[in-house]
Nucleic acid binder design. Structure first.
Length: 192
DNA sequence: TATGAGATCAACT
DNA sequence: GTTGATCTCATAC
């Protein structure tokens, strides 16, 4: 079992994104396999960093390998990991996990029994793992985070991102082909 | 199966 | 005052 360090994130966000698919993300020992994520680059109008630093997105402008957690629609928390190099302000948004450990804990936090719905969405997985703004800025390679390398090469599909209006045509959403834990199915013929 | 309302916060106009 | 990297529940088809 190989544990990934923050160095893993110190390259193009478009390289990191597919490489993260199939890795295992744990938070205080609870979590699962990353089955879906999206890439956001600082030159991308859909990225929070596009218009420059603010109090909220400050972590994005720091070094790679750190968590950027923000509140979405005033209700949910969403988890990102900073990529590339300090100041480039790129990140991957973790969108869905296949639950592996701490199932009972996640079910209690989500008040759900359906395993498929525990972590199939950015807001959902943060509730299941109990990740909040208090964890903004934490390193990926130190507790409570742990990131484990994948053992086998997953079948990765690519598609357009979800829930955005700007640069909506960019195919920067990645996932495991056919996984039942995706937040939404990938459009047909989007493999690539 | 599909659409709509409501929750409620940070950034922007 | 409006919009958004969301989710759940309710109502309509």
């Amino acid at each position: 079992m190989v544990v990934l360090t923050r160095d893993f994130f110190a390259r193009s966000v478009h390289e990191v994104a597919p490489d993260l698919i199939g890795t295992t993300l744990l938070f205080n020992g609870v979590g699962g396999e990353i089955v879906e994520l999206e890439a956001y680059h600082h030159t991308d109008p859909a990225a929070h960093s596009y218009r420059g630093p603010t109090q909220r997105n400050a972590v994005m402008f720091g070094p790679p390998g750190f968590a950027y957690v923000y509140r979405s629609y005033g209700i949910h928390w969403c988890l990102n990991f900073v990529c590339e190099e300090e100041g480039s302000a790129s990140a991957v948004l973790i969108r869905a996990l296949r639950p592996l450990t701490g199932l009972a804990t996640m079910r209690r936090r989500r008040r759900l029994t359906d395993e498929r719905l525990l972590c199939s969405g950015p807001g959902r997985l943060c509730e299941a793992l109990k990740i909040t703004g208090a964890h903004n800025g934490l390193a990926i390679d130190a507790p409570p985070f742990e990131l484990r390398a994948r053992a086998t090469m997953p079948d990765i599909v690519k598609g357009v991102r979800i829930g955005i209006t700007k640069a909506a045509e960019k195919p920067w959403r990645y996932g495991i082909a056919g996984s039942r834990f995706l937040s939404k199915v990938f459009r047909p013929n989007s493999r690539g």
